[in-house]
């Protein structure tokens, strides 16, 4: 379903962990145009943080590269965030989305996708091994109205 875009923004940055915070802040600034509640903004920041961290930790674990964020505010105050990397990709997306599944060791909880799903209305994952991964997050901004 194609919806008219009211506003868009593209950000490209290197997959460095320091940019996880930058990505959250940038998405929050863009989302502010839709007049979200504090809670909606926090949900979005958390979900974006998870998706960008996945790109940094998993996508580009073997070589450096860029993360692209495509932000769109659609009709009806639907916010869409695409987080794209050209990294290693995910062989089994269904498995990767399972709660507590991780390939990154003891300090990673394996909750990234679970958190994204719980804080967004829709989470789509498209991935090809060797080509990269695109995570699309959608959140309906209801605001204070």
């Amino acid at each position: 379903m194609n919806k008219t875009k009211r506003n868009t923004c593209r950000l490209v940055f290197p997959a460095k962990s320091v940019n996880e915070g930058f990505a959250r802040a940038a998405v929050a600034a863009f989302a502010a145009l839709a007049d979200p509640t504090v809670e909606e903004l926090a949900d979005l920041k958390t979900a974006v943080s998870e998706a960008v961290t996945n790109a940094v930790v998993h996508g580009y674990r073997d070589y450096p590269g860029d993360v692209t964020l495509d932000l769109a505010l659609l009709e009806g105050n639907l916010l869409r965030v695409k987080v794209r990397d050209k990294g290693v990709g995910i062989a089994d997306v269904k498995l990767a989305r399972q709660a507590l599944y991780t390939t990154a060791g003891d300090e990673r909880s394996g909750l990234g996708f679970t958190v994204m799903e719980s804080f967004c209305d829709k989470v789509k994952v498209a991935s090809r091994p060797g080509r990269g991964t695109t995570v699309t997050l959608e959140k309906q901004i209801r605001g204070r109205a």
């Binding site: 926090a42 920041k45 958390t46 943080s49 003891d106 990673r108 909880s109 909750l111 958190v115």
Partner: peptide, 16 residues
Amino acid sequence: TFMDSSGVGLIMGRYK
């Protein structure tokens, strides 16, 4: 002031 699932990893690691 902000936490994502890395906070869970932090707790899990310290628990171990």
